[in-house]
Design a protein around this nucleic acid. Sequence first.
DNA 1: TCCAGATGGTTGCAAATGAAACTATAGCCT
DNA 2: AGGCTATAGTTTCATTTGCAACCATCTGGA
Lengths: 163, 163
Amino acid sequence: MIVKAQHSADGGQDAIDLEHFLPYRLSRLTNTVSNAIAALYRDRFGLSIPDWRVLAVLARFPGSSAQDLVSRTRMDKVAVSRSVARLVERGMVNRATDEKDRRLSRLALSAEGRSVYARIVPMARDCEAALLANLEPQQREALDRLLILLQAAADELDGTNEK
Amino acid sequence: MIVKAQHSADGGQDAIDLEHFLPYRLSRLTNTVSNAIAALYRDRFGLSIPDWRVLAVLARFPGSSAQDLVSRTRMDKVAVSRSVARLVERGMVNRATDEKDRRLSRLALSAEGRSVYARIVPMARDCEAALLANLEPQQREALDRLLILLQAAADELDGTNEK
DNA sequence: TCCAGATGGTTGCAAATGAAACTATAGCCT
DNA sequence: AGGCTATAGTTTCATTTGCAACCATCTGGA
């Protein structure tokens, strides 16, 4: 049984309805999308979303270091370290120490990694296509612009609160 | 040092650039927003985002049961149970067993809870306003429509993969 | 050359999260 | 009434996550 809405003591104009609260809506949307995709990768290939991100970057930028992965995926460096370890372990990624600077690893997909990646790409594309299926071309452009603006505002917000 | 983009063996037209991949962009945006907000609530009031969501729903729907909270916040029932326990513990929420059905709890904000809530609402509004600050009114409407469409598509996607 | 500080990356630990098992109560069907 | 099934909510346990401490290597300056 769902309780009916009620106004708070002072009239309710200062209450917030989660359903219309932008951060909540974004969070809900992202969670739904991520869960659907995560299930897909996990069931078919035993990969997590972080794993997939690492593969995607290495497919495009072979020879990246872990630090490159951090900046390109915005993942935590610990998460990158662990994903890479898993993928090396499973033979999808090759790691070689850079000869010039022995602190960094040069990472790249193995043949196996490329093969897995090639099989995932269509699934990822299909997911994206399904999300966008009901949008007109101009709505897609609008979405693109909005996401850019929102991300910029969010970065601003994050930076402001920081210190 | 950032490695330059390279094409994969088969020409690269089947590679995915994370920066333009919608699920990744959504995830990134949501994480930025959530982290900024979480820091705000945590620093000022020691509340997590789940806690805040419970407060928000109880402010608007006093007398909700835990189950009502689950459907209104889309949180996991375990998360709801834990948030409620914390909030009761801290004196922000009152719990009473329903007399008609002794399985359910009737939850409501205490005076303290209302007071905390009243102080958080302006912060939440400010965050939302900051996000939307650079959007024209018609862009905000477009955003609203897009979020509805995307959420519907995401629900569809989720339901399809499910079984 | 050698030391101090910076950078790349991993490990350890503690908190957050989620699935599944469990307890308690209710409602239905005979 | 008795028992079966469903629902509300909590607890337990395994996994994930993130910070901070850590080790290794490099770089620049005395």
